[in-house]
């Protein structure tokens, strides 16, 4: 599914976010990306939707090069990769339903099909009754559910999340994590950058730890602890 070959990213200010990273993530895996702030987690996740390009190396998604992709192909890549942000990135002027429907309108689906899919995903993330609410009327956890719903409504084979529980209390985080787990069980590959020690320790998934842009640990059913 995801292959990184000697990927290095150096920003214009000289900061090296990733250094010579090589790895492979199989279809259907659930991977936690852990590490201190500035370890390169966000750079890694944002490379998967080609928001950031590596300065060196190659990234393949389903065998297709993300690096050599033409600009006009990028929207179609992004339709196959659901992305969940720490700060939700919801449109404040649109209702819950409209925020989720947004991702389907972009693809050009008809209204009937959109309504059907939106209703299904609202049920999945547990937001029934909130369809007509605006984001500001929701709690942080509820907003993140909307963001997840928007990310998965298109049935993307890959779901990427950048600190999705970073702004949430432990109880709400657990609820959110359960949703990710369910989605993963249905076959979607999940890559999640996180600081959430408790979640990582509880779920026991593959853990890739980054430190100063390098992989320092890659462990099946790993926990959250420091190597260096």
């Amino acid at each position: 599914m995801i292959q990184f070959f000697n990927v290095t990213k150096q920003y214009k200010n000289g900061n090296v976010a990733l250094h010579d990273v090589s790895l492979a993530i199989k279809n259907g895996e659930f991977v936690f990306l852990v590490g201190a702030s500035g370890a390169g987690k966000s750079t890694f996740t944002h490379m998967l939707i080609r928001e950031i390009l590596p300065t060196e190396g190659q990234i393949l998604l389903d065998g297709k090069s993300v690096v050599r992709m033409k600009n006009r192909e990028v929207p179609f890549l992004r339709r196959k990769v659901g992305f969940v942000f720490q700060d939700y990135q919801l449109l404040q002027k649109r209702t819950v339903s409209e925020n989720i429907a947004f991702a389907l309108e972009v693809v050009g689906l008809g209204q009937q099909e959109i309504t059907k899919k939106v209703n299904a995903v609202i049920e999945l993330v547990g937001l029934v009754g909130h369809e007509k609410s605006y984001p500001e009327q929701l709690s942080g956890g509820e907003q993140q559910r909307v963001a997840i719903a928007r990310a998965i409504v298109n049935n993307p084979p890959l779901l990427v999340a950048d600190e999705p529980t970073g702004n949430l209390d432990p109880e709400t985080s657990l609820e959110i994590m359960k949703i990710f787990n369910t989605i993963n069980k249905w076959g979607t590959t999940v890559v999640m950058a996180t600081h959430d020690r408790e979640m990582v320790n509880r779920l026991r998934k593959r853990v890739i730890q980054l430190s100063f842009g390098e992989i320092v640990r890659d462990e099946e059913k790993g926990g959250y602890y420091n190597v260096r």
Binding site: P75, L77, R78, F83, Q89, L90, F102, V106, R150, N154
Partner: peptide, 8 residues
């Protein structure tokens, strides 16, 4: 957000 959900 439009760009992130794959809008051309």
């Amino acid at each position: 957000v439009m760009k992130f959900v794959g809008a051309t």
